[in-house]
Write a protein that binds this DNA or RNA. Sequence first.
DNA 1: TACCATTTGTCCGTATGTATG
DNA 2: CCATACATACGGACAAATGGT
Lengths: 79, 79
Amino acid sequence: MAAGKIDQRSAVPAYRQLADILQRQIEAGDLQPDSQLPSETTLIQTYGVARGTVRQAIAVLRDRDLVVTVQGRGTYVKA
Amino acid sequence: MAAGKIDQRSAVPAYRQLADILQRQIEAGDLQPDSQLPSETTLIQTYGVARGTVRQAIAVLRDRDLVVTVQGRGTYVKA
DNA sequence: TACCATTTGTCCGTATGTATG
DNA sequence: CCATACATACGGACAAATGGT
């Protein structure tokens, strides 16, 4: 588990930290290919950040080509 | 096409430049009446400016009566 | 068919900090 | 000092898509 935590006083922005945490979970197989990421609401509650921050983090993962997002459904780990 | 670019070293503020670029696209029919403008996020990425700058530019277009903005939906070219 | 819950998409307003000219 | 601009972050509201009841 070791979900990882966001350090608000870090020089690294929160959305980058969250993106890195999720990427590590993907690479560790904690988040399996084709599986769904936690919803934005869940990530907000889990990591104590705002929705915009969560969405920015997921945008980073899309940029890195690690996930795909479908409106009304969710974000999925690329196979 | 020539989407136009923002010249950071210009005396004209970035938000004015962006407003002018979008106005030209509207007048050229590149952005059709009743069609949706690119989202704030897209404009940020496309022109490399900050959110505040994008919103200021769109405010200018509203002032010029060229577009209307609907919360939760987007900004549209006036018919 | 209609309704509803869930989830993502977009916009609004505000705020803090940094940097430049 | 001040205006402009960027980067980050929060919280709220409404819209749109999906899937199930």
